[in-house]
């Protein structure tokens, strides 16, 4: 196992994606809270806000948005890097030196993407709820118990786990699609551009479509 390469990719996909994941999730949680508060306010049911936001984040928004963000940021970079290595004969050079390019380039990226997408999703969930909490406590002036009671009752481990399971599948999609597109790049710089674009388009669509099927086949409750 090429541990060093795997760690390097985990650093790239995981650690370096943290800022964009945290920023996106904080604002997603915040805006969702704002909107749902206005709706629940009409029925004087403001205390449902915390639970609603948290369930939506852990089950759907967390994994899906994280998947789309990772595909856009890390997937595109992987396709571009491997694609550039293909067209400049660096992959041939690996082969020529008796180094298997699949082991050297593809496997570490695939493993890192499968591990890090769920980790980033967990971060997304957590920071998203914090964003929601901040808006609820601050501008909306909710009380701590009003926000938390429903949240604690509604979110169970199964919600979180099913979200993380989705994220794992999305990690497989991102790693496989980006590496495949990069590895079979043809036609110089233009080809690298095409491979990059199509890796993002194909993984994003695959994430959204597979998300439906996973939701359809996964039971709603444990």
């Amino acid at each position: 196992m090429r541990l060093r390469l795997i760690i390097q990719q985990m650093e790239f996909i995981g650690v370096q994606s943290l800022p964009i994941i945290m920023l996106s999730s904080a604002f997603t949680g915040a805006v969702f809270t704002l909107q749902s508060y206005q709706a629940f306010h009409m029925f004087s049911a403001e205390s449902l806000v915390g639970g609603t936001v948290a369930v939506a984040l852990t089950r759907e928004l967390g994994p899906t948005l994280t998947g789309l963000l990772v595909a856009g940021r890390a997937g595109s970079a992987m396709a571009a890097e491997i694609g550039a290595m293909r067209v400049s004969e660096q992959i041939d050079a690996l082969d020529a030196m008796g180094v298997d390019p699949i082991n050297y380039l593809v496997k570490p990226r695939l493993i890192a993407s499968i591990v890090m997408t769920p980790v980033l999703t967990a971060v997304f969930d957590l920071v998203g709820v914090l964003g929601s909490y901040t808006v609820a406590m601050g501008p909306l002036g909710m009380s701590y118990p009003a926000f938390m009671t429903n949240l604690k009752d509604w979110v169970d481990p199964y919600d979180i786990n099913s979200g993380l399971f989705k994220a794992l599948i999305f990690g497989v999609i991102i790693g496989a699609v980006s590496c495949y597109k990069g590895f079979y790049t043809k036609g110089g710089a233009v080809g690298v551009g095409k491979a990059t674009t199509s890796s993002v388009v194909v993984s994003s669509v695959a994430i959204l479509v597979s998300n439906f099927f996973i939701a359809y086949f996964l039971p709603a409750e444990a």
């Binding site: 550039a84 290595m85 400049s88 004969e89 660096q90 041939d92 050079a93 030196m97 008796g98 298997d100």
Partner: peptide, 20 residues
């Protein structure tokens, strides 16, 4: 074949250095 390859050195048309 991978073993045979290690008996060769090749200088590629555009060098093919690893740019990372």
């Amino acid at each position: 074949l991978r073993k045979v390859r290690t008996r060769f050195g090749i200088v590629f048309q555009d060098a093919a250095l690893f740019d990372s």
